[in-house]
């Protein structure tokens, strides 16, 4: 693993939904080595622990990364107060990202709520080969739909209350898709119950599935063993660490 820590300039900031912010950050040395599914560990001024935030865009030519995050507590609130032109302290890129395979002909990218942003770098890679299913609480919480469309991906939108797109959870349209064979891989990020259901559907239909997990973490690089997650590797129970072994895991490895 290769990572760096430094202060990087925020080139652009926008609020893309209620309490959800998008930053474009100039960090060529990080963008150069970052890959889909990895995260950045951001220092929130005045807090002991950094906040892990998944990477939503990698532009190696411009040397930028994009992150999209929701204000969930005091730490993310502090980070959201940074503005265009300010510097942001990041330790990045961290973690084990998604497995990308050029031979895949059709992939499904599934994002639940603030689990949607890490799907965008995959859509940039797979483009027309991808179907993006994303689910949100309601129409006000919907993000990134145009970004996904711009990659050429097909998009399916769901909301819990039916105020936009399909009324229901992402698992409903996904189950339909999964039955019609021809899906080479599924990548998902979102709430645990959603990931658990998707993993099961993939298992039942024999589809390769990778999921991105979240856990409270401290060091972010595998030293402190704070972010444990119970997995199976080579038939043995293994306490993996979300920051280093993950955040992306093969769904079959995770013990629910």
């Amino acid at each position: 693993m290769k990572y760096k820590q430094g202060n990087y300039i925020i080139l652009n900031k926008s609020a893309i939904a209620r309490e959800i912010y998008s930053f474009e950050i100039l960090c060529p040395e990080i963008a150069e080595i970052a890959s889909a599914g990895q995260f950045v560990h951001i220092r929130a001024e005045g807090f002991t622990l950094r906040r892990p935030i998944s990477i939503c865009g990698i532009d190696k030519n411009k040397g930028t990364l994009r992150i999209v995050f929701e204000v969930r507590g005091e730490g993310t609130e502090k980070i959201s107060q940074l503005n265009k032109g300010d510097t942001i302290d990041m330790l990045a890129p961290l973690g084990h990202g998604f497995t990308v395979n050029d031979e895949f002909k059709k992939v499904v990218l599934i994002g639940g709520g603030i689990g949607t942003p890490p799907m965008l770098p995959l859509a940039e890679i797979y483009r027309e080969k991808s179907v993006v299913i994303s689910g949100f609480r309601n129409a006000y919480a919907v993000i990134l739909q145009d970004d996904f469309k711009n990659t050429g991906a097909e998009t399916i939108l769901c909301t819990d209350d039916g105020s936009a797109g399909i009324h229901g959870f992402v698992t409903q349209p996904f189950e339909e898709l999964a039955k019609n064979s021809g899906i080479d891989a599924v990548y998902a990020c979102g709430p645990m119950p959603m990931l658990k259901n998707i993993s099961k559907i993939c298992k039942d239909n024999n589809i390769f599935c990778e999921i991105s997990l979240e856990e409270r973490m401290a060091c972010g690089i595998g030293a402190c063993l704070g972010c444990a997650c119970c997995t199976v590797r080579n038939d043995e129970e293994y306490f993996a660490h979300v920051c280093k072994d993950g955040p992306v895991f093969n769904a079959e490895e995770v013990i629910w």
Binding site: T48, L49, G75, R216, G226, C227, A228, E237, F239
Partner: peptide, 15 residues
């Protein structure tokens, strides 16, 4: 194997 997660929490000026 250690304890079940969550194992980490933020506290005022500490953890």
């Amino acid at each position: 194997t250690g304890n079940i997660a969550p194992r980490i929490a933020e506290t005022p000026s500490g953890m």
